[in-house]
Design a protein around this nucleic acid. Structure first.
Length: 804
RNA sequence: GCCGGGAUGGUGAAAUGGUAUACACGAGAGACUUAAAAUCUCUUAUCCGUAAGGAUGUGUGGGUUCGAGUCCCACUCUCGGCACCA
């Protein structure tokens, strides 16, 4: 009987004592392999099944790669800054420093119980000053390069809680905690200019990433090619309205222009009799959150400004409106409205009875009715003077060129991607290393003064500003430039900044004088395999690429991309539903690990389904894996047939074939991250080998095969079989394709596409002899009687097909 | 609405265009046992049949092919992401 808990403790201790997984960071004799998982947030809840489902197979992958001869570096750490710890502090009064320390310790124990190869000596904790001083350093590098800047921007604001809310704290336009309606408030905040890297971020050529993730990032960045068009404003010779459009071919159909309510131009051109209406409308808009404003099927609203603009292509006078369907954050905050060829403009024009002029007709000559909607496809221009008959694509080019010549327009590439707002009016984050001096303005904290320490004696209760603003010892400082009294920035950084460079620090995690050892990091980068949830497709994975590109441009790293290969784990469900506290269907790993051990628990998670698809947890399902482990243990440790000579010759051949067939299945399964089929292969092997028996050499082969999937079990058997060194210092067994070949094989016989019988033929048998045998098969004979064969197909080793 | 997955036994799931349901759970029967648990053996898509065999079967409807879970077209449901991007 295999005693998992004893065995696992024994090996975990031995691994730690020997420092088996302390990476040989400078070893150049083996190719390096940086095997990384997205580090966890140390929450008060324990390690959940999702963590296990991510980390255990990721570790199996690392062990497999290690046995394949690579020098594997598998680090871990904690993404420990962030909202939950602060909210917990507000609720309980326990400072985040304390709760995080407790949670990390607890989680470290649980992570250790998985039996992973983590190199704990390289642990990184983002809320430790020894880490966040370098997050502040990263900020300063961006600042120096002009990539960090300040501007006013709206935040979600809860007037009742007196606090700024993150997007995820706004539920249906209301505050998550007090249910009060959320409004917007303008605040001056720090941004990273990620937009200037938009074009580079669209280059995915070096990445072995899921197609889906690349597509999501592409869409998120949202590159579009279009034109800007300048409209003069009647009575305002010094102002103009610049619009951005991807459909300049529809310019002759422009029947009005729309500005975003926040557009500063509105104030200037508004006529007195329309001021009251606009003010009311603007107030209304401010109250509505982005979420409400973009609600599906929302009716278009807007107000007339009283002003008129001039269409530069034909001199048409068109009214200027304000509507909240135009966003200040995209394009120029102004659009030319072509109701005939844009859905939103169409709805708006219908409602406010603005003219709808068709200027595009389908290229195939089919008729279009504008009675029930806009025609949004490309086509051929009509009602467009000189451009009548020109195709949309050509017209876009020609019209823009004319505008360009006249100085009223140009080609323009636009991005949906917005700059990254990094300011958080929060306590539990890395303070932004900036000092405000009355005389010198914004002054960066000199690098040698880092870290800007987060004070511990702080009142966390929200009072409308970052809690740090109420800590005079923190706020009051002197200007590094002129030495006069000055104030610190009281906001902290978004936690995505912390996690956008941690992988650079891991190899030199304890470095004192620098964020990372340039040589070491360059040796280990890029991350060869990055494993984590698909929810990070757009935020974390984009930010990390951006920061990495900046670091490269500053000369700190050589690699172009941080994460070479990326794999997302699927979701673990319970009875087909997502696990959640509110549903009460959360499965705790601990009790199962205690009962079955980590190997069995790990293997069951891998057996549930393909890694990238996730799986459905079943309390009883794990018993199948437990039974398998017992059978495997028995097969490998019983005293019978330890020598090959004790096994009959034909049984030995069967065994060999069985072994190599299994090795292939396991190899294919692990390589494809379909560990479920790898384990199924091993189960089949055990079922077979129980009949034939197995000798010591074969046992050693199979123990190595299972080792990445069941590390403790494998070590124990490896030792039992007389080996002194760790099985993870052994080589992974390769399969021999020559030994896979069967002597004879059963093939199917089809008549008109239906299987009517089978015959057993020798491998490599001639077509003619196989056909003769097939025709002689009892059941087939019946079908062939009195029928004429029109066609005979023979697929060697697979089947025979007769068409009659 | 748009983008991307997915849909196969009672359940989790296998299947380079070539015998659909491997492997496992569950269920049923049996062996061992005073008994139970554990373990072992057998059966297990549905329908007809004692059997041999046959019919029907991979969300729906078409198509390509000697042959389709797999490829093509149209659709339904479901999960995930995005959402007035001009």
């Amino acid at each position: 009987m295999y005693e998992a808990s004893q065995v696992e403790k024994k090996w975990q201790k031995r691994w730690a004592d020997k420092g088996l997984y302390t990476a040989a960071l400078h070893d150049e004799t083996r190719p390096k392999y940086y095997n990384l998982v997205m580090f966890p947030y140390p929450s008060g809840d324990k390690l959940h099944i999702g963590h296990w489902f991510n980390y255990a197979p990721a570790d199996s992958w690392g062990r497999y790669i290690r046995m394949k001869g690579y020098n594997v570096f598998e680090p871990i750490g904690f993404d420990s800054f962030g909202l939950p710890a602060e909210n917990y502090a507000i609720k309980t009064g326990i400072p985040p420093v304390k709760s995080i320390a407790t949670n990390c310790a607890k989680m470290e124990q649980q992570l250790a119980a998985i039996g992973t190869m983590y190199d704990w000596s390289k642990k990184v904790v983002t809320s430790d000053p020894e880490y966040y001083q370098w997050t502040q350093w990263v900020f300063l590098q961006l600042y120096k390069k002009g990539l960090a800047y300040r501007k006013r921007a709206p935040v979600n604001w809860c007037p009742s809680c007196n606090t700024v809310l993150a997007n995820e704290q706004v539920v249906d336009g209301r505050c998550e905690r007090c249910k009060h309606e959320v409004t917007k408030k303008d605040m001056t905040q720090w941004f990273f200019n990620i937009r200037s890297y938009a074009e580079q971020l669209l280059d995915f050529s070096e990445l072995e990433w899921p197609e889906k993730t690349i597509l999501m990032q592409k869409y998120w960045i949202g590159r579009s090619e279009g034109s800007t068009v300048d409209f003069e404003i009647k009575g305002h010779p010094n102002e103009k309205i610049t619009v951005y459009t991807t459909r300049v071919d529809t310019l002759y159909g422009c029947s009005y222009v729309v500005l975003a309510p926040e557009n500063p131009l509105v104030e200037k051109i508004l006529t007195p009799e329309h001021k009251a209406a606009f003010d009311a409308y603007y107030e209304q808009t401010k109250k509505e959150t982005d979420i409400l404003r973009s609600a599906e099927g929302r009716e278009k609203t807007g107000v007339f400004t009283g002003a008129y603009a001039v269409n530069p292509i034909n001199g048409d006078k068109v009214p200027v409106w304000v509507a909240d369907y135009v966003l200040m954050t995209y394009g120029t905050g102004a659009v030319m409205a072509v109701p005939a060829h844009d859905e939103r403009d169409y709805d708006f024009a219908k409602k406010y009875e603005l003219p709808i002029t068709q200027v595009i007709k389908p290229a195939d000559g089919s008729k279009v009715s504008l009675a029930d909607g806009a025609y949004t496809d490309d086509g051929v221009l009509i009602n467009s003077e000189d451009f009548d008959g020109v195709e949309s694509e050509m017209a876009r080019k020609k019209i823009t060129e004319i505008l360009k010549n006249e100085g009223t327009g140009d080609f323009k590439v636009n991005f949906k991607l917005r700059d990254w707002l990094v300011s958080r009016q929060r306590y539990w984050g890395a303070p932004i290393p900036i000092i405000y001096c009355k005389d010198c303005g914004d002054v960066p904290v000199p690098e040698e003064q880092l870290p800007v320490m987060l004070p511990e004696n702080v009142d966390f209760v929200p009072r409308g500003k970052s809690p740090l603003a109420f800590v005079p010892e923190f706020m009051q400082t002197t200007c590094p430039r002129c030495g006069k009294p000055a104030e610190r920035e009281c906001d902290t950084m978004d936690t995505f900044v912390d996690s956008s460079w941690y992988f650079l620090r891991y190899p030199s995690a304890r470095a004192k004088e620098k964020p990372f050892d340039r040589e070491l990091t360059n040796h280990w980068m890029p991350v060869d395999m990055y494993i984590g949830g698909p929810e990070h497709a757009c935020m974390h994975l984009l930010y990390a690429r951006f920061i990495h590109m900046v670091m490269r441009d500053l000369g700190y790293v050589d690699t172009k991309e941080p994460f070479k290969r990326l794999v997302h784990q699927g979701l673990v469900t319970k009875d087909g539903a997502k696990m959640s506290k509110s549903k009460g269907n959360v499965v705790s790993p601990d009790e199962f690990v205690e009962r079955y051990g980590s190997d069995i628990f790990r293997m069951y998670l891998m057996f549930m389904g393909p890694f990238e698809a996730g799986g459905d947890w079943n309390d009883q399902g794990i018993t199948g894996v437990a039974r398998f482990v017992d059978r495997f243990w028995t097969l490998m440790t019983n005293r019978k047939q330890m020598k090959a000579s004790d096994i009959e010759e034909s049984a030995m051949r069967d065994l060999q074939r069985n072994i190599h067939k299994t090795l292939k299945k396991v190899h294919d399964g692990i390589e494809a991250f379909t560990f479920n089929t790898a384990i199924a292969g091993l189960m089949e092997f055990v079922n077979e080998a129980m009949k034939t028996g197995i000798d010591t050499d074969s046992r050693k082969m199979m123990v190595r095969a299972i080792a990445p999937l069941a590390p403790h079990l494998a070590e124990e058997i490896w030792e039992f079989l007389g080996e002194k060194d760790s099985v993870f210092n052994a080589e992974y067994p390769e399969y021999n394709p020559d030994l896979l070949v069967e002597d004879s094989i059963e093939i199917a016989i089809q008549i008109n596409g239906k299987v009517r019988g089978t015959i057993t033929v020798a491998v490599g048998a001639e077509k003619d002899s196989v056909l003769v045998m097939a025709k002689a098969q009892d059941n087939i004979k019946k079908y062939l009687e009195g029928a004429s064969i029109k066609k005979e197909i023979y697929v060697p080793g697979k089947m025979v097909s007769f068409v009659i």
